[in-house]
Design a protein around this nucleic acid. Sequence first.
DNA 1: TGAATTGTTATCGT
DNA 2: AACGATAACAATTC
Length: 270
Amino acid sequence: MPELPEVETIVRRYRPRLEGRRIVAFASRWAKQAAPSVRAVRAGIVGRAVTRLTRRGKYIVFHLDDGGFLLVHLRMSGRFEWADGQHTRPRHVRSTWDLDDGNRLLFCDSRKFGRLVYTRDLAAATADLGVEPLGRGFTVARLNRELDGRARQLKPLLLDQSVIAGLGNIYTDESLFRAGLHPLRRSNRLGEAQVAALHEAIRHVLRKAIRYCGTSFDRAYLGGSMQKRLMVYGRAGEPCRVCGTPIVSIRVAQRGTHVCPKCQALDGEL
DNA sequence: TGAATTGTTATCGT
DNA sequence: AACGATAACAATTC
């Protein structure tokens, strides 16, 4: 469930303890997690120093000092932890990185959906990712180009990582609510002002979520407080914070979807 | 027990 | 044929 704001928070949180460190050992107990293979990942990263830790879409990107890259995707339940905490023993440890300062980074993932990818060509590895919604390339004109010329439902389009990289279920619902757009509206039937509103909404929602360190959910991701400020996600039956109408839960593209039937009218579409 | 979750891939329909 | 929607999938928790 970590989406762009949660991944960004994790990157910022781990950056100070990873950048400049050398990886002295790597182990993975979950072969299907690593691409091209556990062996290839180990060969690529052991002995290398981490020069930078960045984010692309929902990927965490380790930049290595020989030009290689390690991409980590948390998918639903992946998370990083340090082995040195004397709290409870971490569960579902799938991979470990030993660093030259004695610390050990853990990748924990109860559902085993998370992925590690070693590559020497970052551009090729991320070629299928769309625009960074908080980057300079994400303009109203760019969004309009993505929306126009196709007749897709807004929600699946926004969830499509090859269109915009980083939005997941929570922030898609939140963005559509802020823009006053129903998730089933067709992408090519928006007016100019509505496209601009959607652009503003996506950036506003993501920035705000980063400011509050993301949305905490059932132990997969903790540490954020955005869950207190969500307008529609997870609020089915509760009154809309704008108009008081009960939030409705519907099913769009096999995803639980939350809408305010008044603020996000369909305008007779469909 | 069924529902929920992400993102990819295969398949179905128009 | 091309496009878009839908289903299946991997694996687990509650």
